[in-house]
């Protein structure tokens, strides 16, 4: 994609155009820093980490920042959700870059730094908090379109999707092999690869809650049902059943 963009720039008269083909992955792999956009730091669904001492963080820190002094980062890494985008900052550039390297080394794929001098960030209007710090990392993945929480799925299981549309349908799209060893009591079972041929077995006037064993197939089934005008939702969670006894784990 970038060669094409470079070609367009060349055509519109730029004379000195290059492409960094290896791209962002090679940059990160070389241990070089990457940065989050300012807007993402302010509003993104991120884990924002203040690497400075607790005292400094108490005096002034970026809003929403969690205090993880650099020397404690190693011990705290298991508390950081691996799917979460993590943004780090410090008043020492070297420390921030070292922390970034440590996290990349531990396999975190979405880590970046706050760009620019921390002093300037903290001086900006409304850009800092002070007082006791939080050390607790509370990050929740945002639901995708059509995705339900485990709580809502469980409500649907008990037959109370909402007052307006009672009798939700639970649709299990795992294979016959998988459903043989167990399924939710009232679930309709249609394996994902048979869904398009068997859609007529599903009602269009009831909410359909789809699950599989992880959520991947449920999402695909959801997309297929949406195209055909069904009122469907899907669950992203691990589901394991023995008989009618099923466990849902996020």
């Amino acid at each position: 994609m970038s060669p094409k963009a470079a070609g367009l720039a060349k055509k519109s008269g730029y004379t000195n155009v290059k492409v960094y083909l290896e791209g962002e992955p090679a940059w990160a792999k070389a241990g070089l820093p990457t940065y989050a956009s300012n807007d993402f730091v302010n509003k993104g669904n991120i884990v924002l980490i203040d690497l400075r001492s607790t005292a400094k963080a108490e005096a002034a820190r970026l809003p929403r920042a969690v205090s993880v002094p650099y020397e404690t980062l190693d011990d705290r890494m298991e508390d950081i959700p691996r799917k979460a985008p993590v943004v780090l900052y410090s008043d020492k550039e070297k420390e921030a870059i070292a922390a970034l390297g440590d996290m990349r080394f531990e396999g975190f794929k979405k880590v970046s730094l706050v760009y620019g001098s921390l002093d300037n960030w903290l001086k900006a209007d409304g850009m800092h908090e002070s007082g006791p710090v939080t050390t607790e990392i509370s990050w929740k993945r945002k639901l995708g379109p059509g995705e339900v929480t485990v709580a809502d799925f469980e409500k649907a299981l008990s037959g109370m999707a909402s007052f307006h549309s009672p009798n939700p349908v639970i649709l299990d799209v795992r294979t016959n092999d998988e459903t043989k060893s167990g399924k939710f009591k009232n679930a309709v079972t249609i394996p994902l690869d048979e869904l398009s041929a068997r859609m007529n077995e599903l009602p269009k006037d009831r909410k359909i809650y789809i699950h599989c064993s992880t959520g991947a197939r449920a999402e695909m089934a959801h997309k297929e049902l949406q195209k055909s005008g069904f009122d469907s939702f899907f669950l992203v969670a691990d589901v394991e059943c023995k008989g009618n006894d099923c466990e849902i784990e996020e």
Binding site: M1, S2, N16, G23, E24
Partner: peptide, 8 residues
């Protein structure tokens, strides 16, 4: 000098 890049 313009340098374009993407995801590798």
């Amino acid at each position: 000098l313009l340098v374009f890049y993407c995801g590798g």
